[in-house]
Amino acid sequence: MLRVEGVSVSYRDFEAVHDISFEVSGGQWLMLAGPNGAGKSTLLKAIAKVLRYQGKVYLDGMDTARLKTKEMARRMGVLHQHHTLGYPYTVEQLVGLGRYAHQSFLSHADPDGRRMVDEALALCGLSGLRRQNVLTLSGGELQRAFLAQVFAQGTRLLLLDEPASHLDLAYQRLIFDTVRDWLQTPGRAVMSVVHDLQLARRYGTHALFMKQGRSVAFGARDSVFTRKNLQAVWDMKVGDWFIWLNEPWLMDKKG
């Protein structure tokens, strides 16, 4: 579905991403992980054509450099980490804009639009908030609204840039569970940048570890999440750190 061949991204004389290649197929959830500054978000932005890059990106076998913006949006949905809203649109209006790429320039005809928006709202648990002003939503609700917008786009591939890193535990779980539910339909795939290794391991089917702009390991989740790779990328014993973090502090106390 998505094939990335030798992609590099440079800012003037600094190379943020160097010669990355990988592939994502239907049913897979690829987790892009690595320390800060590893180039994960830069790589995602290059694939989404927000940043210029060298190399090739193929979407459904087509070179994305030749795809028009609308065509890209019909095939690939992108959820960014932060959102800037200035005006009191309703949740429904926000989600409805996800149909933009399916509507023609002058006649806005979109036979599937209504159904797709309703389904996306229902999947994200927002049906009750459809008339709500987006400026009054909590961070978690707003992220779900944008996730619903991406779902309404009706693509088979999702690119998520740290979709839940600024959210509390309940919303993190809600966002990841929602994406996992979406992925149940055959032929769909997800690629996401994730900071939290526990979430990456819990939800991912595949992983790509990056360090200083380079790929360190790529493949099925269990072949990438090895003690050796984790230590190479984070320069520390990640397993020991998690054991220390997860010492049974809750179980110590009653109530």
Partner: peptide, 24 residues
Amino acid sequence: LAHARELDAFAMGEENARAIGVSV
């Protein structure tokens, strides 16, 4: 007026506008 929808998309963020298919 022909760009009303695109302006809505911009009003919800430029990055997001590009993501939904607007030629920013």
